[in-house]
């Protein structure tokens, strides 16, 4: 646990905003498994070889992100696969697109494992009476499934997905809606997330949150305006820090 802005942590938070993907679990492996499952489906059912699939997928993803901007639907696997199939020249194939989306999330969930001590940390917050809101990009349907899958719904009181608001983080609406759902919170707000821009900068500018960045392989610590108030690599460290306050 590294406290960069030590003096700001002068007591326990009045609420905690939590990012979900790549903060509470490592996104890399499940994503790779999901993508491999979709690629396999494309190969076996549509005779699209792996290289063609990857190329078409990357272009489709860029195209959708460009067209939709930072919105929830810009993360939609269904749209990515629909467009990938279209780009390969097979026009719109609803059955295959749905199947590939299904294959992706099925493989994704089967590989996804919460980081150690995540549930214990959430339980500490519950016992301390600190409300928790999951603030996450992506579409609501899959985020609800993830909450149930991980059992997070037993600990987190609320969730805000970017589908509920105009735009993805770091736009302020998701953070503001999170606090509004709690009935308005005045006091210390913590934002725990992995992304320096979306989570750290976003929450600080939107609601003045103290920001704690979760670091692990592939996550770069924020610098400059995106520098967090603290960083940690293990939730056990965060638990100890929380208990010490």
């Amino acid at each position: 646990m590294k406290l960069i802005n030590k003096s700001a942590f002068d007591g326990r938070p009045d609420c905690v905003l939590l990012d979900l993907d790549n903060t509470l679990y490592d996104y890399t492996l499940p994503h790779a498994a999901g993508q491999a499952a979709a690629r396999d489906y494309a190969g076996s059912q549509l005779s699209i070889d792996a290289d063609t699939f990857d190329t078409a997928f990357n272009v489709s993803r860029q195209e959708l992100k460009h067209r939709l901007g930072a919105t929830a639907s810009s993360h939609s696997r269904l749209l990515y696969y629909q467009r990938t199939i279209e780009r390969v020249g097979l026009a719109t194939q609803p059955f295959a697109a749905l199947q590939m989306e299904q294959a992706y999330w099925s493989a994704f969930l089967s590989e996804a494992v919460l980081f150690e001590d995540v549930l214990e940390f959430l339980d500490d917050l519950r016992i301390a009476g600190v409300p928790v809101v999951i603030v996450t990009d992506l579409t609501a349907q899959i985020q609800h499934r993830k909450l149930l899958y991980f059992g997070l719904h037993r600990y987190a009181d609320w969730m805000v997905t970017s589908e509920e608001v105009k735009a993805d983080k770091p736009a302020p609406e998701a953070f503001e809606l999170a606090l509004a759902k709690l009935g308005g919170i005045e006091g210390r707000i913590w934002m725990v997330g992995d992304n320096a821009e979306r989570d750290v900068l976003g929450a600080r500018e939107a609601v003045g949150a103290l920001t704690l960045q979760k670091l692990h392989n592939g996550v770069a610590e924020g610098t400059g305006r995106c520098q967090p108030d603290a960083t940690f690599t293990r939730f056990s460290d965060l638990r100890r820090f929380f208990a010490s306050l």
């Binding site: 299904q102 099925s106 969930l109 499934r145 993830k146 909450l147 149930l148 899958y149 059992g151 719904h153």
Partner: peptide
């Protein structure tokens, strides 16, 4: 029930 809904849809 949660697993059936979350995993099996």
């Amino acid at each position: 029930s949660e697993i059936l809904v979350a995993v099996c849809g």
